[in-house]
């Protein structure tokens, strides 16, 4: 019975793996719920600030913020890539990175320069391996994305835009659709498209052209601050969505891994039983054969 011990050991090791994947599945499930909550909590801020931006862009005619003005020639592009810090979450990061690479190749054939800001370790590792130009990076966000950690990275990109180092800025992340489905998306961050500014606002509120805010102390710094915060809120929202996507993708991947381990165990058990049975049969026939010989 030399083979059966090996099979038994194998079964034991697969069972241990299954325990790990099952534990990870449960951890991911509980984190997912929290991540979804955070994603939802971030929404009101985004909506409010968009309303303010919409009012402002309609009301204030003397100063138009650069973020709202689209540029005719696009030479350099800034890209923010949001990925997870950790792996073991199925095709989540691969999908978004593939989208990024395809898009980058298309841009490069048009002769545009691309600079990248990486949020998340996986994207950073990939981008630096393939030799993309990385201007800023944020890794180790943990389970709770904090806007404070994103400020620096966003500022590098915004400064680049203000100093004409970028003519356009895009963000790539995984949009959370439901637990089973996450979708890699590309969105234009700068200049702010009309739909970003006006969306939803027009349906329930008639534009009133006559009024403007009183700005204190002055219009320009206040508008600048609002715009920067708006962009930050958009990036934060993307990061929060990506995190919810990460946890649910991990949960699904780990569930699949646990199921697979179960299948492997079933198969191995069958083989083990068969070999045990064969050994017994062999022994019996030997005894019977021996008795007949006597």
């Amino acid at each position: 019975m030399a083979g059966s011990r090996e099979i038994r050991n194998k079964i034991k090791s697969v069972k241990n793996t299954q325990k790990i994947t099952r534990a990870m599945e449960m951890v991911a499930a509980s984190k997912m719920r929290k991540a979804q909550d955070r994603m939802k909590k971030a929404r009101p801020y985004g909506e409010k600030i968009r309303n303010v931006a919409a009012h402002m862009s309609r009301a204030n005619t003397e100063y138009r913020h650069p973020f709202l003005i689209s540029r005719d020639t696009v030479k350099r592009i800034g890209v923010i890539v949001v990925t997870s810090d950790k792996g073991l979450c199925g095709g989540l990061n691969t999908n978004v990175l593939r989208k990024v690479v395809n898009q980058m190749r298309a841009w490069q054939t048009e002769g545009e320069e691309i600079e990248i800001c990486c949020i998340g370790n996986k994207g950073l590792g990939f981008m630096s391996r393939v030799g993309a130009k990385i201007v800023s990076q944020v890794i180790g966000l943990g389970d709770t994305p904090e806007i404070a950690k994103l400020i620096g990275a966003v500022k590098v990109i915004l400064d680049g835009y203000m100093q004409d180092r970028f003519d356009r800025v895009y963000i790539f992340y995984n949009r959370f659709i439901n637990t089973m489905k996450q979708e890699p998306v590309m969105e234009q961050l700068l200049p702010l498209t009309d739909e970003r500014v006006y969306e939803r606002d027009d349906s329930n509120r008639k534009p009133r052209m006559a009024w403007d805010y009183i700005y204190e102390p002055e219009a320009k710094p206040v508008i600048d601050d609002i715009m920067v915060r708006y962009i930050e809120a958009l990036v934060y929202q993307a990061v929060a969505e990506n995190m919810a996507s990460e946890q649910s993708a991990r949960m699904v991947a780990m569930k699949a891994a646990s199921d697979n381990a179960g299948n492997v165990i079933d198969e191995l058990t069958l083989i083990y039983n068969k070999s045990r049975q064969a050994a017994i049969t062999k022994e019996l026939s030997e005894i019977v054969g021996g008795a007949a010989a006597v």
Binding site: S128, K133, V135, S136, Q137, V138, A153, K155
Partner: peptide, 14 residues
């Protein structure tokens, strides 16, 4: 300061 920090991190990695 935060912007400089992330820039430096990226440069170091590059």
């Amino acid at each position: 300061a935060k912007a400089i920090e992330v820039k430096r991190a990226a440069e170091e990695a590059i």
